Simulated scan of single mutants.
Amino acid sequence: MSTEDRRRMIVTAVLPLVAEHGTAVTTSQIARAAGIGEGTIFRAFKDKEELIDECIAEALRSDSVLEVLADIPLDQPLDRKLVEAAGAMSAYLDRIGAVLGAVAAGGRLRRKPPEAPEGEQPQGDPRRESFVAMNEAVAELFDPERDRLRGSAEDLAAMFTALQFTRARGSGLSSVDTMVDLFLHGAVEAG
């Protein structure tokens, strides 16, 4: 197994532990979860902090939610497509919240990425790129309904995606079905 493959395997195995224990996760727990010896951790990562940074980066990656959004059948009714999309985005945001919350509770937030060397372009903002990619995927869900929409598919997708990031979890309006209904039909009952 290549070092990169081993790193990915360890991060995948350890991510749930980081969500549960944050920075208090032990190398013994890490090794057990990954099915490796403790020394193997340090052949793949400089230290536990680097591993936790990689777990945070993995939690922030939007690949899995983008795959789910791409797999939503476009021929079903718009409300069903949006319920599926909201469910996928909610799970993604819950994962981010669990990992970042646990790490922050341990007194540590993600270290800032290193500055780009002089004369080189800085890397893009992965969170912004992720948000843009989600907007594009959600716009595709609106696209078959383009002739019935009160705005562009892109604008409605941006509003819908922003709503997912700000939705109050735990409130009576937090159910995905209720939120989609309110988004599509408004807050006032038809007369």
Results as ranks from 00 to 15, higher is better:
residue 133 A to P: 00
residue 131 F to M: 13
residue 145 E to T: 00
residue 104 A to K: 11
residue 141 L to Y: 00
residue 105 A to R: 11
residue 122 P to Q: 05
residue 112 K to H: 10
residue 116 A to V: 14
residue 115 E to Q: 15
residue 121 Q to K: 12
residue 116 A to D: 06
residue 108 R to Y: 07
residue 135 N to R: 09
residue 95 R to L: 15
residue 115 E to R: 15
residue 126 P to S: 04
residue 132 V to H: 09
residue 145 E to V: 02
residue 136 E to T: 14
residue 99 V to C: 03
residue 114 P to H: 13
residue 98 A to T: 03
residue 107 G to K: 00
residue 125 D to N: 15
residue 96 I to F: 06
residue 104 A to M: 05
residue 116 A to W: 03
residue 100 L to H: 12
residue 113 P to I: 08
residue 112 K to A: 15
residue 101 G to P: 00
residue 137 A to S: 09
residue 144 P to M: 08
residue 98 A to H: 07
residue 96 I to D: 06
residue 120 E to D: 10
residue 97 G to A: 12
residue 117 P to S: 07
residue 106 G to S: 02
residue 143 D to A: 03
residue 125 D to G: 08
residue 111 R to I: 14
residue 126 P to V: 02
residue 135 N to L: 05
residue 139 A to R: 03
residue 108 R to C: 03
residue 112 K to I: 04
residue 123 Q to V: 08
residue 144 P to R: 07
residue 105 A to Y: 02
residue 109 L to M: 13
residue 133 A to L: 06
residue 125 D to W: 05
residue 107 G to Q: 01
residue 122 P to K: 05
residue 127 R to P: 02
residue 139 A to S: 04
residue 127 R to Y: 09
residue 106 G to V: 05
residue 144 P to T: 00
residue 95 R to Q: 14
residue 121 Q to F: 02
residue 130 S to G: 13
residue 131 F to N: 07
residue 137 A to W: 04
residue 114 P to Q: 14
residue 97 G to M: 05
residue 117 P to Y: 05
residue 129 E to W: 10
residue 141 L to Q: 00
residue 111 R to E: 12
residue 138 V to W: 05
residue 119 G to V: 03
residue 120 E to F: 07
residue 133 A to R: 09
residue 112 K to D: 12
residue 130 S to K: 05
residue 124 G to M: 12
residue 102 A to P: 06
residue 138 V to M: 04
residue 100 L to T: 13
residue 123 Q to Y: 04
residue 129 E to K: 10
residue 123 Q to I: 08
residue 120 E to R: 13
residue 122 P to G: 06
residue 144 P to V: 02
residue 131 F to E: 09
residue 107 G to A: 01
